[in-house]
Design a protein around this nucleic acid. Structure first.
Length: 824
RNA sequence: GCCGGAGUGGUGGAACUGGCAGACGCGCCGGACUCAAAAUCCGGUGGUGCUUGGCACUGUGCGGGUUCAAGCCCCGCCUCCGGCACCA
């Protein structure tokens, strides 16, 4: 028997695919398109098991869809800008570009060794000037449309990475990349106006049925849409103080107002009152506090009276105005109405400063006494102390009250979002330069389109820590103003690398296009991405940014679709010894080692078989052994019986009534159906399990040592079926064995079809229950009519024994499945 | 605190729409082959009890409920994971 040598056959088939350009696609032809995309990797040096898993899942789907006759776009590229390149430069004195391209070269060979079916002709690296030049073009277009702007504001800053982070890139007060605590810094930065799309991004969550609920929830949560009303409270001097509330049903319970310390009115109000000094020192104190400290829910509520009063527009009540540390300037109007009876924060503040509590919502069946309340009553109830709204259910009253406010001109409906604009400036070198020039005379001047690209200079040594190296490099920043031709300075910050990943999926559609940012025709042919696969960690990062960016590009007429990703699969992490694989935990399994020891097919098979894609995968060395053993078993199945198979044609639907043949035939068709259904819904682990069952059945069949031609023909049919079904999972061994028995494998359009006639078994096993308890089973012919079935069941010895002397109340029959006898 | 998701053998995980719980794999036990071992092949494997080639009871985080029938549906909890969190 020819031995199974994974490395030999894997290299062989990879060469065949490469030479034949098997996976190259174009936009011609009548086949239906299918765009399958996996999140592209950062070229960190080597791929890790998470990549192997992600790309193995994707490759199964890509190969499967190809076999089903689709024109499949399955591209790969590199998210190539980013900080590790700079760190490597500083640590090892290699240029970020050198480091990056060397990593790409190595990782490309790794991916090729795993046999993934990419169209390598469409490979892109985002650090190529031919890529980022168009990103700069898009930036300028956005600038023209007011979708990118510059402002001075407190921003998140990671002291370890020495750069700014967007809100989405801060996780629990720490940097998403390095885990260092994030501090606040006042800086002038460029922002993308993602909030202009907040509503669309929120509402379209409901139009993405192909996304996991979890991710949609996270996005909605992040955008944080809340419906409410802006109400104008008038100050004594006649100026309006506008607040936002979602609870206008509690307006009659307002007993004080609170401004954020940063609110423009805060200091102004106190000016000239006896409170002036106290107010200014309070504001100074809060400003000095760390923002993350202020954001702590446990931080005690503190405030100070401004000495001024406002008037409740509904009932004319005179209400003191405070400044408080718990009010955020960034949300709503930076001012709130406080209803201590029905809001816990307001309640705590009122207790601290001895402010009155007025109940306006009464729970069913009891009366609230403000003097005895120990916490706010935040649930629903009946309105009281609310003039003509009394007696109404508070929830139902909300729209009525809002109508009333609008009618009287006291306020207006308003929707508020938690989402903030996306800060994209990074004080780093290895990124796409922001195409802007600062001129003392003309101010901020965008680089003219004809001057693009603004090239990232590659001839400087990256050694500087703390500032962007570009800011230390006059050859880059010294320039002339495009407008007045005088001396000017370039922007030295680069763009957040999440900008590159926000449109790379569009570039794949027309990777070789040079005349403009995107070839609309080809982009519209391929978009949207039919299936996107990646880690859930990007639920509110990359996936939200990409939805936003795609919308911007849609607005610029570069792409037809509004949503880039039709279906999303978020695969779980690879876990070992109860923790995510990481260098610091020392529990990393190196894909190179795995391929070396077992081959690519085993590595792929284990990743796919050990758990369903969405779940975390628990690493198990023994599990890997098991996968290798199965492939050996498949190999032997064919290699040991080559002679027996080579001189017969495969048969899938044998004639006649031979029991052995009928059983195997049933198995073949059942397996095709099961694997097809399972792959369609990404149950790849159970798809593999059922192929294993087929292989086991073939072994049992072989043991019968049938030598007749019919039996051999069916054996060949069964083996070919198993091999073809295995192809998307383990393509190398499948191709080799198919070739060995002389059946052609073109990797395209040859997914097997099943015949429903053979999917059903001739005889079925009926579960026999008495009062719901399983007492016996019996085998009957399929679709046996109910009367005969009952007759058979009641004649069973065990049934007779159990029902003896008991009264039969009814008998439930589920055809081909079960009979349940209900008796006393 | 709010919003999601998940709890099944020794273990990774199956069970599509309420219909034989534990497919498939790993591990373990027994057997075959072998001088022996490895590899391979075959058989067994949720728990408890018994009059032990069989039979009974029990069993999907806990407590109730609906149903002829519940891992799956409903109500009330517990635990773990994830997201948001002074967002008005």
């Amino acid at each position: 028997m020819k031995p199974y040598e994974p490395h030999v056959i894997e290299e062989k088939w990879q060469t065949v695919w490469e030479r034949n350009k098997t996976f190259k696609v174009d936009e011609a032809g009548a086949k239906k398109k299918y765009y399958l995309l996996e999140m592209f990797p950062y070229p960190s040096g080597k791929i890790h098991m998470g990549h192997v898993r992600n790309y193995s899942i994707g490759d199964v789907i890509a190969r499967y869809k190809r076999m089903r006759g689709y024109n499949v776009l399955h591209p790969m590229g590199w998210d190539a800008f980013g900080m590790p390149a700079e760190n490597a430069a500083i640590e090892r004195n290699v240029h970020p570009a050198t480091w990056t391209y060397e990593n790409i070269a190595y990782m490309r060979t790794q991916l090729k060794r795993l046999g993934f079916s990419y169209d390598w002709d469409r490979e892109i690296a985002t650090c190529d000037v031919d890529y980022y030049r168009w990103e700069q073009w898009m930036f300028l277009k956005m600038f023209e449309r007011g979708l990118v702007y510059r402002k001075n504001s407190p921003v998140n800053y990671c002291t370890k990475c020495r750069t700014v982070l967007a809100n989405e890139q801060v996780e629990g007060g720490a940097c998403w990349r390095c885990g260092e605590e994030v501090v606040q810094k006042e800086l002038t930065q460029w922002f993308f106006a993602i909030t202009k799309y907040a509503d669309e991004l929120y509402e379209y969550c409901d139009k993405l049925p192909g996304w996991p609920e979890k991710v949609l929830h996270m996005q909605k949560n992040w955008i944080g849409k809340s419906h409410g009303v802006e109400v104008d409270f008038r100050l004594e001097d006649g100026t309006d103080m506008t607040i936002f509330t979602t609870r206008p049903d509690t307006l009659y319970g307002v007993t004080f107002m609170v401004l954020a310390p940063e609110h423009p009115l805060s200091f102004k109000l106190a000016q000239g009152t006896s409170q002036e000094k106290e107010v200014s020192s309070f504001i100074e104190k809060v400003k000095a506090q760390d923002r993350s400290f202020r954001g702590e829910i446990s931080t005690e509520k503190e405030g100070v009276f401004t000495g001024r009063y406002a008037v409740n527009p509904l009932n004319g009540a005179k209400i003191p105005v405070y400044i408080g540390n718990f009010v955020l300037m960034e949300y709503g109007t930076g001012a709130i109405m406080a209803v201590p009876a029905h809001d816990q924060r307001d309640f705590e503040f009122a207790k601290e400063y001895d402010l009155p509590v007025i109940v306006t919502i009464s729970p069913e069946g009891r009366t609230l006494d403000p003097r005895e309340m120990t916490e706010a009553y935040v649930d629903d109830g009946v309105m009281v102390n609310s003039e003509h709204f009394n007696g109404r259910n508070n929830r139902e009253a909300i729209p009525v009250i809002i109508d009333y406010l609008e009618e009287k001109g006291f306020g207006r409906r308003m929707v508020n979002y938690r989402l903030k604009d996306w800060g994209i400036s990074r004080q780093r070198y290895w990124g796409a330069p922001i195409p802007v020039v600062y001129c003392d005379r003309c101010g901020v001047v965008p680089v003219p389109y004809e001057d693009l690209p603004v090239r990232l200079p590659l001839d400087l040594g990256v050694t500087v820590i703390g500032r962007s190296p570009l800011a230390e490099y006059p050859e880059f920043y010294r320039t002339t103003c495009p407008s007045c031709k005088g001396d000017a300075r370039r922007e030295t910050d680069t763009m957040d690398t999440f900008v590159e990943s926000s449109w790379y999926f569009l570039k794949y559609a027309c990777a070789d296009y040079k005349e403009g940012p995107l070839d609309r025709q080809r982009v519209d042919y391929w978009m949207p991405v039919d299936q996107y696969i990646g880690g859930v960690e990007h639920a509110v990062l990359h996936l939200l940014y990409s939805r936003f960016f795609n919308r911007v590009l849609n607005g610029l007429g570069l792409v037809e679709v509004k949503e880039p990703f039709e279906n999303l699969l978020t695969q779980g992490m690879v876990i070992k010894d109860g923790a995510k694989m990481s260098k610091s935990k020392g529990n990393v399994v190196d894909p190179d080692y795995l391929i070396e020891k077992y081959g690519a097919d085993t590595a792929r098979l284990f990743c796919l078989f050990a758990s369903p894609p969405e779940k975390d995968l628990d690493w198990s060395d023994q599990g890997v052994e098991g996968s290798a053993r199965f492939l050996q078993r498949v190999w032997r199945l064919v290699a040991e019986h080559v002679e027996k198979l080579s001189n017969v044609e495969p048969v899938y639907e044998p004639q006649g009534n031979d029991g052995d043949l009928r059983e195997l035939t049933h198995r073949i068709h059942k397996t095709i159906k099961k694997v097809t259904d399972d792959v369609e819904r990404f149950h790849l682990n159970t798809a593999i399990a059922s192929i294993m069952e087929l292989v086991n059945a073939i072994y049992r069949y072989i043991e019968k040592e049938r030598q007749d031609r019919e039996a051999r023909e069916l054996l060949r049919g069964a083996i070919e079926t198993a091999l073809v079904l295995l192809f998307p999972f383990v393509p190398h061994i499948s191709s080799e064995l198919q070739e060995m028995i002389g059946s052609g494998s073109d990797a395209v359009s040859n997914w097997p079809v099943y015949n429903e006639l053979y999917v059903q078994e001739d005889r079925v096993t009926i579960a026999v229950q008495i009062n719901g308890k399983l007492r016996d089973t019996c085998s009957v012919e399929r679709d046996l009519e109910e009367a005969s079935l009952k007759e058979t069941v009641f004649s069973l010895e065990k049934v007779k024994k159990h029902i003896e002397g008991r009264e039969i109340r009814k008998t439930i029959v589920v055809p081909n499945k079960l009979v349940n006898i209900v008796c006393s």
